[in-house]
Design a binder for these strands. Structure first.
Lengths: 355, 355
DNA sequence: CTGAAAGCGCTAACAA
DNA sequence: TTGTTAGCGCTTTCAG
């Protein structure tokens, strides 16, 4: 019945000013126009270019807007502008400081650029990754930032099919089909190893998490294996998280020819290693050196401070956001970008005992 | 010129089948209809109710869809359905395990419910909180879940203005204007205190983070102060994070009449306390008991295991997601909901020395 | 089973 | 400065 009113000859302003819109139906631009006795164009103007409307009409319109508690429909705006102003990030999990930090930086940067962030987690499952990616696009993501798995072809299909900007992060690979913004995981691992060998360590236990669907861990491990002439390396896998670090470390300690240093592929794992060493009554770095990767915010505060390779995670988030935004804006695909890591030596590493 | 084609008499199917759509313009429903020689309605049907279309036409249409790499416009769908299928969460920061875990659980649940998650961070700033909330709604969030600050009136205005479903989490308050889903922070703090006093501690140092814009910390502190007849409490504030815990702990240790136990208002702070104690050469729990709140995933693995009050953070995320979804779906505002916490005694607490 | 046509709520020419 | 009027891309009656 509201429609009947609308369809009535618009020039004949015979409607009743005091009519109450049926409760629960949200006010539209037309309702406002009607209430303010102006055209929809005028209302649209006070919304988008207030300066072009005479103060007096503007006030009237604004009054109507307030009375009717009007809000523009995002969908209708989007359909006209062709833009939703939202992009999406796909990460394996939020329950990991490194991804959380990454997303935080990204969200902040996107906010500055006037974009909102959709977040979805994949649990490291390529299938889910693909499904969620489609879902995100279907609800309006203008671009995607993926972190983690990423080498799946599903995303390539999406990118191709939809001309969707997708940037991959957490690794750098100039040969990848989509732009990558990240660090060189092989170099990162080598940096850690170099630090240990430079201190004189020759028997080193490498403590790492699960490999499945984790390119980063794999790349680091590969680099280490390729450098195994520099030291005698033993590899110990654990589950995700601190617990995994504990168990893998226990395995390393049980070795007949125990390592003099532990190279942990993440700070979280290193924390587990430190706990385990403490339980074993081993001193750090006196009995065992420990180095991590990530340089999480607590690493500098541990006792002793954890030597770590600092990864440009926040920078990566911000850069990825900026790259994606510019891609969307200019239609020009951004270049791959490598970010540098940095060794942060602290108390947890020292020369092997007996040197 | 494409439009010229479109405007040509539609019944006269005189267009060239091999014409290539101008590259870069995304295919629309009409393009598909044209290519498949059917009406837009039919294309829409194969998209939304494939069963109602004859297999042969359907195949033709699907072929066209593939050829033209067609994807429906989310905006256009939303404008018709009135639904965006996205909700938003507003948290102080992502850089904190507790919020990350919360969001993770929420995203998972929302995914099951067919909703996507927009995430924005406020840095604990009420102004930013309000701005971001409006922004999220303006790009299409159908509902909001806030965590942290939340007592700002700005959100109430938003809720009122837009009839926007907003649920508040991380605390429980049946008198709040919006539905709250959370735990009783006062009870949580009392549980921790009870544990310590039951063990015989009478001088307890309370280690906490910043208060500004943090209702949860404030509520916990209030409860503690109200119970100060049970023990002699000293309060030590630190910055956010492990570092803050270290410094506040150092202050507590410097007290002339040193506490026998440290009640840390979060596990992160407790980690800082443990590090600091280790640096000071004090044994846990021999020289000093430590209890935290949160029961983060690493807490059980520390050396010794950290006694903590487990907070139903994941459950809270899932519940909040479900409540918001049902609110949106049924238009019925959900009830407040209180979730229970649980003391998890581990090795870091014991009777005071000398008892 | 299929098509024509009327919108959804808004923006943007183009006129007045 | 303001109004008229086409659409945006899709869904959805209502007829055939």
């Amino acid at each position: 019945m509201i429609d009947a009113v609308r369809l009535a000859d618009a020039s004949k302003r015979a409607w009743c000013l005091t009519q109450k819109v049926t409760r629960k139906r949200r006010a539209t631009l037309r309702d406002v126009a009607q209430a303010a006795e102006v055209s929809v164009a005028t209302v649209s103007r006070v919304l988008n270019a207030p300066a072009t409307v005479s103060p007096i009409t503007r006030e009237r319109v604004e009054g109507a807007i307030d009375n009717l508690r009007f809000m523009r429909s995002p969908a209708a705006r989007a359909i006209n502008s062709g833009r939703t102003r939202a992009v999406a990030a796909l990460v394996p999990t939020l329950d990991h400081a490194i991804f959380a930090r990454f997303l935080g930086a990204m969200e902040t940067r996107l906010g500055e650029l006037g974009l909102s962030l959709l977040v979805a987690t994949t649990g490291g499952d390529p299938d889910l990754e693909e499904r969620k990616a489609w879902g995100l696009v279907e609800i309006g993501a203008e671009g995607l930032i993926v972190s983690g798995v990423s080498h799946s072809t599903g995303l390539d299909r999406l990118a191709d099919r939809h001309d969707l900007p997708i940037v991959a992060t957490s690794f750098f690979d100039p040969d990848a089909t989509m732009p990558t913004i990240g660090y060189d995981n092989r170099a990162v691992a080598r940096t850690a190893l170099d630090h240990l060998t430079a201190l004189g360590h020759r028997r080193i236990g490498v403590i790492h998490g699960p490999l499945e669907g984790n390119d980063r861990t794999q790349a680091r491990l590969d680099a280490l294996k390729a450098s195994s002439d520099r030291a005698q390396l033993s590899f110990h896998a654990g589950d995700l998280g601190v617990g995994g670090g504990c168990r893998a470390t226990a395995a390393a300690l049980a070795l007949p020819d125990r390592p003099t240093a532990l190279l942990c592929l993440s700070d979280v794992i290193a924390l587990g290693a430190m706990f385990e060493l403490q339980r074993a009554g081993l001193g750090i770095p006196g009995d065992m050196s420990v180095i991590g990767i990530d340089d999480l915010s607590w690493s500098k505060h541990s006792a002793p401070g954890l030597t770590s390779v600092s990864l440009p995670v926040s920078e990566m988030g911000a850069e990825a956001a900026a790259a994606l935004a510019s891609w969307i804006e200019t239609q020009e695909r951004p270049d791959h970008r490598i970010l540098s890591h940095l060794l942060v030596p602290r108390g947890s590493t020292g020369p092997p005992s007996g040197v």
